[in-house]
Design a protein around this nucleic acid. Structure first.
Lengths: 114, 114
DNA sequence: TATAATATATAAGTTGTTTATATATTGCAA
DNA sequence: TTGCAATATATAAACAACTTATATATTATA
């Protein structure tokens, strides 16, 4: 498993992307999906996940749809129209970030330390 | 410029990678180099940079070589043997992280919301 | 009957950042 | 010659965000 500090800044974007891709999801499902997609390398903790979801809701990025499934409460989250544009923006940022990281990781030494 | 929260978790690895690639660097030089490599998309703040450098020094990952250049003090940082193995490890983690992010970003919808 | 999996939630503690501030020299432009 | 930008390091206070621990409750499995 990857160290959690790496994931920190991308947590919100990951959640938003999954919501856009899957229509609507509940919290527990999001953690399962992330583990599945990354072969267990990324695991979200609930202490991080729920506060982020609640914040996104308060910002009008997503809305909730509580449902009952087998006497268990499932709170589905889905993007608002505003949320969709936020996802687009965040995904663009994430792509640029990944590109920038690769530029650094693949950089060759300068000529300044011959 | 990219939002700083994205960069957070990768800061240490970025610094270590640049030190390995360039032999030795001083703090100001590191910030210049990161801006140069990423076309201004990533900018390190000194309030983040120096504490990280000092911590890496206290952990035995790097050592310092203060030098005088034009009456200005430059504190060069260079990796210890231990530091080199840390870089290798951190870069591997970062690569896995990037791969994981791409798996999520490129993921297609599940069949569960027909 | 006990444990694992499912499902959400929050508070306390920790960590790590931003922002503001301090200090000092060199080079350039007005 | 005065002031500003660039160079160069450093730290404290404030803030943000995460981890860890804890709480609650149902269903499925051993």
């Amino acid at each position: 498993m990857l160290p959690t500090d790496l994931i920190k800044g991308s947590l919100k974007t990951i959640i938003l992307k999954l919501l856009e891709e899957n229509g609507r999801m509940y919290g527990y499902e999001i953690t399962r999906k992330v583990e599945e997609l990354t072969a267990g390398k990324i695991k979200l903790t609930y202490g991080a996940l729920y506060p982020v979801l609640h914040k996104l809701e308060s910002e009008g990025v997503l809305i909730t749809e509580p449902e009952n499934f087998n006497n268990r409460i499932r709170i589905y989250y889905l993007l608002t129209p505003h949320g969709h544009s936020v996802v687009t923006e965040k995904l663009k940022e994430l792509s640029e970030f990944i590109e920038s990281l690769q530029l650094i990781v693949e950089s060759k030494p300068g000529l300044n330390h011959a």
